[in-house]
Computed example of a mutant assay.
Amino acid sequence: MTIWVDADACPVVIKEMLYRAAERSQINTYFVANQMLKIPPSRFLHTIRVASGFDVADNEIVKLCEPQDLVITSDIPLAADVIAKQALALSPRGELFTRDNIGERLNLRDFFDTLRASGIQSGGPDAINQKDKQAFAGQLDKYLHQHANKP
């Protein structure tokens, strides 16, 4: 089991939670980004630097993830791609993307893209708040508990 992090857009507070979780659970966690990342020294924390470009980090995560791995991302198309590979996807806000909800999330994303393309400003997401951090920590702990001891 491996955790993959779409690290370019992952909030620092979520990365810090993942550093502690990886060490505590002894699970390899890879931070994939198109820039240099500083992570604490640990045999369970790794970085993968990819070239700059549209979806390069996403494509690398999809290529490397395996069934039952966990991918941390707010990127809905990336979540859909890893779900298709039977991996799990969790947003930094604690939303678990599943086969049951990913289609709706893709449609909503496409709708907002269409609005933005037509000049309607919808604004970006709010900053991560305490409720989001708690939801993320709860989902992460649930995943670790369910999958950490499986072969």
Rank of each mutant, 00 (worst) to 15 (best):
Y30A: 14
E66I: 13
N101V: 01
R116N: 12
L108P: 09
P92T: 01
T73S: 04
S42N: 08
S52I: 13
V82Y: 00
P151W: 02
T47F: 04
D81K: 15
G123N: 01
P11T: 05
L106G: 02
I128Y: 00
R105T: 01
D110E: 00
T2Q: 15
A127G: 09
A9G: 11
K85Y: 07
M17Q: 15
H147G: 07
I120Y: 04
G138P: 11
M1T: 03
L18Y: 01
D8S: 07
L96M: 10
D113S: 12
A137I: 02
A117C: 03
F136V: 05
A80F: 06
L45N: 06
N34M: 06
R105H: 04
P67S: 07
S25C: 10
G94T: 04
K142L: 15
D126M: 11
I61Q: 01
P151S: 11
S118A: 05
H46I: 13
I3K: 10
Q26R: 14
L140G: 11
P125M: 03
N101H: 00
G103T: 11
D75F: 11
S91G: 08
V5L: 07
S122M: 14
H147C: 05
P125W: 00
L96D: 07
F54V: 12
I102L: 01
I76D: 02
A80R: 09
A22E: 06
E60I: 11
L90I: 02
I3V: 10
N149V: 05
F97H: 06
M17K: 14
V32T: 08
A51C: 12
R116Y: 01
F136W: 01
Q139M: 12
R24F: 01
T29R: 09
S74T: 08
K15A: 08
R20K: 13
Y143P: 14
R99Y: 07
V5N: 04
R105A: 05
F44A: 11
A51Y: 06
G94Q: 02
V82S: 05
C10T: 09
K131V: 15
A89F: 02
N149H: 13
I14K: 10
K150H: 10
L90N: 06
K15S: 08
F111Q: 05
L144R: 15
I72V: 11
P40L: 09
K150N: 12
Q146S: 15
I72W: 00
G123W: 00
P41Q: 15
G119L: 01
D55T: 15
